[in-house]
Design a binder for these strands. Structure first.
Lengths: 152, 152
DNA sequence: GTATATTGGTTGCAATCGTAACTATTGATT
DNA sequence: AATCAATAGTTACGATTGCAACCAATATAC
C-alpha cells in the first residue's frame, strides 16, 4: 500500500470539476441572460427536447442526474411558462408524462442553436486533438458510470 | 451558419458535468463520512496542503475556483477545528496568511491517502488508455481556462 | 496631505438546494 | 379484500449558496 506524493493538480475529481464548472458557467451565462433560464430548467428542457418524446420526471432525473426535487421544481416553472404540459397516465395515475408544447419546442430549437455554436467555439479553442481525447476519456467515465447507481 | 442536429449526449458541458459529478460525489461520500468535511473545506485543506506553504484566502479561491464567500466560510470552520491558523501580514494588514497546523497537516496526509487510493481505483476502472485520453483532454481545457477569468 | 479608488476579507439576506417526511396510487402478501 | 410495501411526485424545513453591501487597509490622484 505504498503511495507516492499526492498532487492535487493531477487529482481527477479536482481537474474534472474545474473543467466542468468553467465550461458550464460560460454557457449558463448565455441562456440565463437571454432566456432567464436556470440550470435545472435548461437541463430539463434539453432532456425532453433531445429525447423527442414525452418523459416522466423520474426519467428526466435519471437521464440528467438531477435530484427529483430539482426536477420537480424545474418542471413546475417550465409549466408556468407554457413550455411543457403534463398528461397523466391512464393506466397508472402516479406517472405524469411531460412533453414540450410548441412554444417549448421553439425555445428548445433556439437554445440548441446556441448550444451548437458554443460547442463549435469550444472545439475551436481546444483543437481537434484535445477534443477527441477528452471525448474518449469521457466515454470511459460514462462507461464506468453505468455500472454504478448515481444521483445528483 | 449551418448547423446539424443537436445531440445532448455529445454536448460537452453536459458530459463534463455528469462525469465530474459522478467522480466527485463518490469521493465526497468518503471524506464526509470519515471526517465530517464539506466540499469547500476539503478543497481548502487540499489547496493549502498541496501548496506546502501559507496562502491567502484569495489565492485559495483562485486556485480552486471557489467563490470568496465559500472560502471565507471554509477557512472559518477549519480554523474552529484547529486545522489551520491565520497570521496577519506585517506590511499589509489586509492579508491573512493561512497555514495548516500540525493537526491540519496530519488530516491532510490522511485525506491524501484516501485520495490516492481513490485515484488508483478510478484508474483501474477507466483503464490506462482512457485515463490518458481524459488527462490530455483536461489539459487542453486547463490551457483554455488560463486565457479567461473564472470564478466559482 | 486629503480625497478617491482598489483590494482582502466578512456578513446580511434572499434564493437555491437536498433530506426527510408526506400524499397518492399501484403492487405484493396473506 | 385488507394490509403492507413500493413507487411517482410534491413540499416543509434546515442548510448551503452567492450577490451585494459592507468594513478595513493600502494605493493612487490631485
Amino acid at each position: 500500500m505504498a503511495r507516492d506524493e499526492f498532487e492535487l493538480e493531477s487529482f481527477l475529481p479536482y481537474r474534472l470539476n474545474r473543467a466542468a464548472e468553467f465550461v458550464a458557467l460560460r454557457f449558463a451565462a448565455q441562456y440565463r441572460a437571454r432566456y432567464q433560464l436556470t440550470r435545472p430548467e435548461w437541463r430539463t428542457l434539453a432532456a425532453l427536447g433531445s429525447s423527442g418524446r414525452s418523459m416522466t420526471a423520474t426519467e428526466i432525473g435519471a437521464h440528467s442526474t438531477m435530484h427529483k426535487t430539482k426536477v420537480s421544481r424545474a418542471v413546475f416553472s417550465l409549466e408556468q411558462r407554457r413550455w411543457l404540459k403534463r398528461e397523466e397516465d391512464g393506466r397508472d395515475r402516479r406517472f405524469e408524462h411531460l412533453a414540450l408544447t410548441p412554444a417549448g419546442e421553439q425555445a428548445y430549437k433556439e437554445l440548441t442553436e446556441l448550444a451548437s455554436r458554443y460547442q463549435a467555439e469550444l472545439l475551436s479553442m481546444l483543437g481537434t486533438e484535445d477534443m477527441k481525447a477528452l471525448s474518449t476519456g469521457l466515454r470511459g467515465v460514462e462507461r464506468v458510470m453505468t455500472k454504478a447507481a448515481v444521483r445528483g
